[in-house]
Amino acid sequence: MYKSWKVLQPYLLATPQTLIFLMFLVFPILMIFVVSFWQFNGYAMTPAFTFENYVNIFSSQVSLATYLNTFKYVTLVWGLCVAIALPVSYYLAFCIKRESIRVLLFLLCTIPFWTSNIIRMISWIPLLGREGLVNQALLNLNLVQQPVEWLLYSDFAIVLGMVHLYNFFMIAPVFNSMMRIDRTLITAARDMGASGFEVLKEIILPLTAPGMAIGSIFVVTLTMGEYVTVRLMGGGQAASIGKLISTQIGSLQYPLAAANAVILLLFTLVMVTGILRVVDIQKEL
């Protein structure tokens, strides 16, 4: 009796979490897949098996441009997040000697992540707007004659906003990887005559790669489906898949939105598996 309880126990304990994900993750995504083959007759969706929605997407110039635009955002945001995360984490992990100060500074980087994304986006408006602080400063310094228009409601603002929102997802794993690097490795390399640059290239970067991979997965997936920043910072014309999906839902075109979602999911999966191919993250978990 006791023996069989022991064997059963882990299954029982794992059941609630499994059920939650089956109900709110697996089943909904299966439904998206199913509905992407349904028909839309102008006001409601009807069960069917048609590739119409997919054909529509791939034959439309607009949606192809939207996909390209999304990839542009993803690439730029990812690149900038890496460019910020490496020096910031390096500074925290190797330049700060006192543990308590390191924790404090890391927390400083963390706090904004706990606050509302929407508020964080809104707060760029008084800085970047036509009459914002940046434009006021530029005008007062006589650097420009007219207010700069592309600071807000532009691709620049979208990328800036996303980097602002998501850089933490890169910094945390990269910092974590750097903290795990055995300091004696660096001392040994130095003793054998390695320059600072060589230490960085031969030891720190390779050992930071798994953290960068985890961070990349987060940043890529977060920016792929993103539409809050695109809406708030991008003005009217800016387009991304996430925004396209939400617009289609707004006009009740669920099957078309579902087809877009399936494609989005496929792209995400390809990117994630690609990243996992390059770097083995098992050890980090």
Partner: peptide
């Protein structure tokens, strides 16, 4: 279950929203 949990984290949020929305619909 471990991978299911991780995928819940990395699936773009708009898919969760759309999926649950469609399911309820």
């Amino acid at each position: 279950l471990f991978y299911l949990t991780i995928s819940s984290l990395v699936v773009p949020g708009v898919l969760i929203s759309l999926g649950i929305g469609i399911t309820f619909q």
